[in-house]
Amino acid sequence: MASKEPKLPKHHYIPVFYLKQWAGSGKVTAFRRLHDKVVATPKPPTHTGYVRGLYWLEGAERSLANRIETLLMGQIDNNAAIAHRMIMNDQIHSLSKVVRLAWSRFIVGLLIRSPATVKNIYDRMTNPTAKEYKELSREFERDFPGKKYKDISPLEMKRAAMFSLVKLMQNPQVEDMLNSMTWTVYDLGLPELRFFTSDRPVIMTNGLATKNGHLALPLSPRKMFFAFANKDIQAEIKALSPWHIADQANEVVIRSAIEVAWDTNASRLPYVEKFLSKDAADDRKFFGP
């Protein structure tokens, strides 16, 4: 009797350490739309926010096929967990350059590492526009002399998409831009208010390179990380009431979710039903217009 192929490993596009912040009772509540209805399901953080084999290098030996997860994603998440713990402990203004870089890289990763983005990279490589085809052909023929882009097999294309993801995850230009901004943490301070998170949790109302550029990320149900391009936009945000910040942040996070949002319990299911994934198709303008 033939033995079963072992399951591919879980690859968390939303890390467990991050989701644990919403797991006060040991479980988070995952909201997902099934057909025309949103369902709320309690799950341990280890059992949600993942796809098996998401970053798997198909065709490689099993000992090598998981290297993107173990050498890149795992390292990013381990370092980010340290940064997150320090930020939650009110050490944001004393972070070392190494820790700030780790946190910046984590934020960039959250924008890129989702299943939808992985699929989009692969789809654009297999069905590029005329302009993209020229660029991809030039890069491919530079990296693989004697080969033509049009002759790449589907398996090679999938692996190339994974390596493109790796390059995007390590973007010094974006990391430097984030590191140059003013970082702060906002605490709602009211037990009746809390933030959601989702599979697209990074909030950007302006591109980072714009005059009033700023970025936000829920750190926990009560705390939000902010990065500001200047003091004026920082003062403008700080002047808002906790109710306004919670309302605005939650609507963006829920509307932007690709498939899944998370909360501490299911009590806000009607709210999620109203907004979940309404803006999921919108692309992010990271650098500005």
Rank of each mutant, 00 (worst) to 15 (best):
Q170E: 13
Y122F: 13
D77I: 02
R222A: 01
I68M: 11
Q91P: 11
E61N: 13
R284P: 03
T48H: 05
V202F: 06
K43P: 00
P9I: 05
S94G: 05
K7G: 03
T126W: 13
R159D: 04
N179V: 06
F140H: 04
K147F: 15
D263N: 08
I203M: 04
D199T: 05
R159H: 01
L72Q: 12
P201T: 08
Y133W: 06
M169L: 15
A280I: 10
T184N: 11
S256M: 02
D199I: 05
N179Q: 13
T46N: 12
P218A: 04
P9K: 08
E192Y: 13
F106Q: 13
K167A: 06
W262A: 00
V272Q: 11
H35Y: 12
D36H: 07
K37F: 13
S3D: 14
L269P: 06
I152L: 14
M162T: 04
T41W: 08
W103F: 11
A160F: 13
F163C: 04
W22Y: 07
E5A: 15
S198V: 07
A281I: 08
K7Q: 14
P115I: 11
A281T: 09
L72M: 13
V39N: 10
A257S: 08
S104N: 03
L8K: 10
L95M: 14
Q234M: 15
E69L: 03
N89T: 14
L110N: 02
P42I: 00
R159N: 02
I258N: 12
L57Q: 05
F225Q: 01
M88W: 01
L95N: 13
W243G: 09
L276V: 01
I237K: 00
V252H: 09
K148S: 05
L64K: 15
A257F: 04
I92S: 13
Y18I: 07
Q173H: 14
W183D: 02
A80R: 07
F196H: 08
M204R: 01
A65Y: 14
V38K: 13
K97R: 15
V108H: 11
V28G: 14
M204G: 02
K167Q: 03
L71S: 14
Y13V: 09
M88R: 09
Y13D: 06
V118M: 02
S114A: 06
F17W: 08
F228E: 01
E139A: 07
K97V: 15
